[in-house]
Amino acid sequence: MIITRALVKRYGPVTAVRSVDLDVREGDRYGLLGPNGSGKTTLVRMLLGLVYATSGEIEVLGRRIPRHAREVLPQIGALIEEPAAYPHLSGRANLALLDAAGPGDRTARRTRRQRVDEALEQVGLAGVGRRPVKAYSLGMRQRLGLAAALIRRPRLLILDEPGNGLDPRGIRDLRELLAGLNDAGVTVFLSSHLLAEVEQLCTRVGVLDEGRLVLQDDLAVLRAPTGRVVLDTPDADQVAALLDGQVERRDGQQLLVRYSDVAALNARLVGAGLRVSSIGPQQRTLEEIVLAVTGAGSDQIS
């Protein structure tokens, strides 16, 4: 769906993207993570033909960008940083204008009203579509931006920070909307610095740090059990004695034990008459994974 090879973008002396090999497969829910200033937006803009690469190749939906942008872009819905609309026009009028601006045949014109209604409905703006956008809240503008990405019923969604400005309920609505679209066959590519957002929605993640793609893998693989068990027990001393040599770390009542089978370990401890408050396989959180591969964000002063 999206493939880049050795993609580089320099702005004068600043290198924003350094040799990125992105690989987004059809049907993915891909989350591009990275601190602010890591090059996410530049990368997204290059995928959409807004910014021209210094070197490297981009292929989206099997066609080269920017050369074939004209054929590819109609199948893509995009949200690029903040949403934007003409403030004096209503949400509906904005969507209709944007749709009319693009390429379109008679079918596109005939279905416009219906597609606009549908998109407003999908993002939960059906009731306020006739109000001028200047009266919209931040969250409503974000929803309108999403609706704009949906009016062409795209095969691929490229969303840069889609959760910005949304309240917790809005975030949940967004997650459900994107998951639903993905189930219906839409590939979702989103960039975010909100780990929780990505962790809950995405099946595949890439991590960008100072312009480099330092990690790209399925979330399930990244979060695979580490072969260690975390357990809480009031009898920590006895457990440590019993599992001598397998305890990697001890922190009060919590022990990290090298042991592949959680159930077997539990049975063994209980069989020895030791009390267990909680037990489970050790899983790295996305936060740990990301922090392990990234430095301090480039907008931070180190």
Binding site: P74, A84, A85, G102, P103
Partner: peptide, 14 residues
């Protein structure tokens, strides 16, 4: 300045 330029161009408008 309003940000609508990028959305027009990815619609796409040449």
């Amino acid at each position: 300045a309003t940000g609508t330029l990028r959305y027009l161009l990815v619609r796409p408008v040449g």
